[in-house]
Design a protein around this nucleic acid. Structure first.
Length: 908
RNA sequence: GGGCGGCUAGCUCAGUCGGUUAGAGCAACCGGUUUACAUCCGGUAGGUCACAGGUUCGAGUCCUGUGCCGCCCACCA
């Protein structure tokens, strides 16, 4: 075995072996219907770049999937990619521009060819990069959202929702991105506070040229779109003006002054200019009052003739300045004060969105009530559960979803209009999956669907829905509902909620939601935190604060990176990424490697012995150290499994059950590391070194027990650091080459240990606990270790002591034990259940420490006495708490007299 | 404007149903190296659990309020 481990070549070789043995594919059997375990990988965008978030997210999924494998589940981890509609189109347009090609001038088909080529060249990069991490997803089942089958799923969904009246076409205000020239959904717009001005503008009255009405606006460039001035109906300042007219400054035209309750009297002057085609509120007011819609801007954000001849042809940002100047010239501008206002920004282009009136397709979300109940009634669990509130809040304030995009890259809307006929007349529409039979008489809708509309079908489409044959081939009935979705809370509306909608809409047959449990797309959603840098900034390419994930893997190995990420990521909390943690991961891998190397230096490998065989060999001549060690391992085994998978805790005497814990990756890994370093290496292996030296006849037994511990431990740890565990598994002879560790079922440890009679009894367990406590105390003595002579007094010599003497010396680093006499009072001594021990003279420092402890102990004793004399406490506290307090008092009193003795102050 | 989270050791964070003397890692300090591992080991020190009230026999934990930090949502132009 190599002296140091080199992750690079090892990881590459092992991943190749896993692929060759096809170990990532679901092991489908005819009887596996009930035990499917599916995880849907959030499909990375084909335009995306691998970042630390991907690494974290996929490590978590990989841990879940590998854990499920070893529990004997039939596992599917579904990978795929998202076509990233607007993002890819923008990207390809940019590439074409650099080549001197105007994308707009290309035909749809030509453009799509370019886009497809780009997708084919870049699409799978992230998935391939993720393999470096060791992800055990089945790439043979990879799905791309524009695959033919998946596309049919999406379009079928559209057609069906249309048929049911949930999808409709309407002319309305939408968020319009003038850069990408497409409509956006509410979710694709974020609000940013921007500094600007609040301009106060005077509109002269038509009826009385000496009077005017003042309005306030942040957008003077839209004046040309004004078709009215609105005031609050009860506003005394303007009561007499309602029904009169005023002059729009430019283009100069009379417009009415109307009254509407939506006007906020307290803002500005209380009078609002109304360009109904350019603001959402104004649109509503316009509709209520039957006002005309005056559009003064082109789709690309350029003012048109209606905006006024001075503004026509200008970009909207330039037009604002021009409008202000113009108002000054016209002497209409009363004041301009700095004002901070909330501006909607397109998530895609980073530019302000324009409220724009346009004809779009919308989805009226179906079964909102059932989507809420799915979470409220616990058919879907969120981890951490606080995200349920966010989900429900969104559902309670839900608006129809604009699902059409004025793009070419995506699923083209399956609606055809009769050529040359009126598109507004539904009689001229054809909505179907395959289109009309006389295609030549129709023209298809130019728009495509929002990418998120297509990803909403991810759990359905990847499993073949709605085609019965595809569903059978892709094992829909085994894997649906899927088990866990691992994703970030930032896409709870974009994706999580919408998958819930689609699954319920199409799979729930019972109107009252009686079958909701089977219709939800996943049972659990595990939300990860955001990976931030050491000073809390979100990692991003533009800030340059994000390490290159692949470079990290190159330098440290995938296992170390996984270890580092998990150990800094507690459930749902943002992560402060520090490379230091990855170093710690590497240190642990080295430790693990060396511990296994040490085992092999002692004797031959395990030769594929089973757990049962190893235990049988280990049980003969096992002593209480061995049994206690096995008990510690068993405890770790149970805890770690529970922390990853969660467990159903029965409540109310079996009347209900509550899902506890689960997804506590950080804590599980911590416990594994603690077990391995502190219990196994630093205690047990060190003990075995003594034993192998002094009791050579026990060698075979000792090595068998080490093998059992290492075998079980490697299996437990493997989901976290799969490569090194796989490698050591083989090196130690637990498996044959090519055998994938994650497919080997976990042993039923409890019955195995019971059969081998390897659980310690309470007395033995206690001995070991006390022994380890004694080690700590002796090690802290002045002059301890370093080959000194340990002195013992009042030693209780019995069979147990005979077993302890050697290990005690070895583990505290003493040369020999002098049990001959009693201590002079100048020695610093400690008490153990087996006697007193000392090495050297009391030091001032040590004595001071003892006095401090004595003071602390006395405080505790006083507090405990008071408590135990308190009648209310005795009456109300549960028995076990009172017992605990008594126990503690007793312990502290003992400790007090020990400390007094150690200090040589032998009074009561 | 509404909502959510965080505030525990110098730093990063655990802390389950309220119950015994609040834990870990890193950093600090002291000590250890005759071969598994210095990518290591042993030990020591370090806390007004943000603040103020309340409930309780008992509060880091539950309730009310306050402060600071972060995030999300929202049509005051």
């Amino acid at each position: 075995m190599e002296k140091t481990f080199d992750p690079g070549p090892m990881e590459e070789r092992i991943y190749g072996e896993w692929l060759r043995s096809n170990s990532f594919a679901p092991r489908i059997t005819p009887w596996c219907g009930g035990i499917g375990y599916a995880v849907m990988m959030p499909p990375p965008n084909v335009t995306g770049v691998l970042h630390m978030g991907h690494l974290l997210n996929n490590t978590l999924q990989d841990i879940l999937v590998r854990s499920a494998h070893r529990r004997g589940k039939v596992v599917l981890w579904q990978p795929g990619t998202d076509h990233a509609g607007i993002s890819l189109q923008v990207r390809v347009e940019k590439d074409l521009r650099e080549k001197g090609i105007d994308a707009k001038a290309l035909s749809r088909e030509e453009f799509l060819k370019h886009a497809e080529r780009w997708r084919d060249e870049h699409g799978d990069i992230i998935l391939h990069q993720l393999r470096r991490l060791g992800i055990c997803c089945d790439l043979n089942r990879k799905v791309h959202t524009l695959d033919q089958d998946y596309s049919r799923t999406v379009l079928h969904g559209f057609v069906e929702l249309y048929r049911r009246g949930h999808v409709y076409r309407s002319r309305r205000m939408v968020h319009w991105c003038p850069v990408s020239q497409t409509a956006l959904s509410d979710e694709e717009v974020f609000v940013r506070e921007c500094d600007g001005f609040l301009w106060r503008i005077r509109y002269a009255l038509v009826e009385d040229p000496f009077r005017s009405i003042e309005i306030c606006t942040t957008r003077p460039e839209t004046i040309g779109g004004d078709v009215a001035i609105a005031v609050h109906p009860d506003d005394p300042r303007y009561g007499d003006l309602i029904g009169k007219k005023c002059w729009r400054p430019f283009p100069r035209e009379p417009i009415p002054i109307i009254a509407d309750g939506a006007v906020d009297r307290s803002f500005g002057t209380g009078a609002l200019k109304i360009p109904p085609a350019h603001a959402a509120v104004d649109f509503e007011i316009g509709q209520r009052h039957g006002l005309p819609f005056r559009e003064i801007m082109d789709p690309c954000g350029t003012m048109n003739d209606l905006a006024g001849e001075e503004l026509a042809g200008l970009d909207r940002s330039v037009a604002r300045e021009r409008a202000v100047a113009l108002l000054r010239e016209l002497d209409c501008l009363t004041s301009a004060e700095p004002h901070r206002s909330a501006v909607g920004i397109s998530e895609r282009s980073g530019q302000p969105v324009e409220p724009r009136l346009s004809e779009q397709w919308f989805l009226r979300y179906p079964n909102v009530d059932l989507a809420k109940r799915a979470v409220e009634e616990g058919h879907i669990h969120f981890f951490p559960d606080r995200w349920e509130k966010t989900y429900l809040y969104w559902l309670n304030n839900i608006h129809d979803w604009c699902i059409s995009r004025q793009l070419r890259w995506g699923h083209r809307i399956p609606v055809w209009y009769r050529r040359g006929a009126d598109r507004n007349n539904r009689a001229n529409w054809h909505v179907s999956l395959d289109g009309p039979s006389d295609l030549e008489n129709w023209e298809q809708d130019e728009d495509v669907l929002d990418t998120w509309f297509s990803s909403a079908f991810w759990p359905l489409g990847t499993l073949g829905w709605p085609d019965p044959q595809a569903m059978a081939e892709r094992n829909f009935s085994v894997f649906f509902p899927t088990h866990t979705l691992v994703t970030g809370p930032d896409i709870i509306f974009f994706w999580v909620a919408r998958m819930v909608f689609m699954a319920i809409a199409f799979l729930s047959q019972e109107p009252d939601g009686g079958d909701l449990e089977r219709a939800v797309p996943f049972r659990n959603v595990c939300f990860t935190g955001i990976v931030r840098d050491a000073i809390g900034r979100k990692m991003s390419k533009s800030l340059g604060n994000s390490p290159d994930p692949l470079e990290l893997i190159d330098r440290y190995g995938a296992d170390s990176v996984r270890f580092g990420l998990i150990s800094s990521a507690s459930l749902g909390q943002d992560i402060f990424f520090e490379e230091k943690n990855i170093e710690l991961g590497r240190n642990f891998c080295t430790k693990l490697w060396n511990a296994c190397r040490f085992r092999l230096l002692q004797g031959g490998a395990a030769e594929r012995r089973t757990v049962g065989e190893l235990l049988a060999a280990a049980a003969q001549d096992a002593d209480f150290f061995d049994r206690a060690m096995v008990q510690v391992l068993y405890g770790t085994f149970v805890t770690v499994n529970g922390e990853i998978e969660g467990s159903w805790e029965v409540q109310d005497g079996g009347l209900s059950a509550k899902f506890q814990s689960g997804y506590s990756f950080q804590s599980a890994l911590q416990k594994l590391e603690h077990f391995f370093r502190d219990d196994y290496c630093d205690f047990y292996v060190e003990l075995c070194k003594w034993r192998l030296r002094e009791r050579p006849q026990r060698k075979a037994q000792t090595l068998a027990l080490q093998d059992f511990i290492l075998r079980t431990f490697l299996q437990l740890l493997a989901p976290f650091t799969p490569f090194i565990c796989q490698e050591l598994w083989q090196q130690l002879g637990f498996g044959v080459p090519g055998e994938a560790l994650q497919l080997i079922p976990l042993p039923d440890l409890q019955s195995e240990l019971e059969r081998a009679k390897l659980f310690p009894n309470a007395l033995e367990w206690n001995w070991v606990v006390e022994f380890r406590a004694a080690l700590t105390k002796i090690r802290a003595l002045p002059g301890a270790g370093n080959g000194a002579v340990l002195r013992g007094e009042s030693i209780l010599r019995d069979g147990v002591w005979e077993e302890l003497r050697g290990p005690l010396l070895a583990l505290t680093g003493h040369k020999s034990l002098d049990e001959s006499g009693s201590f002079e009072s100048s020695l610093a001594a400690v008490h153990t259940p087996w006697g007193r021990f000392a090495v050297a003279r009391q030091t001032d420092e040590f004595a001071a420490r003892l006095r401090e402890e004595l003071a602390r102990v006395r405080q505790h004793i006083a507090a405990n006495r008071t408590k135990l004399e308190d009648q209310t406490f005795l009456a109300r506290a549960p028995e076990r708490v009172i017992e605990g307090a008594k126990e503690l008092l007793k312990k502290n009193c003992q400790r007090e007299s020990q400390l007094l003795a150690q200090l040589g102050e032998e009074r009561i």
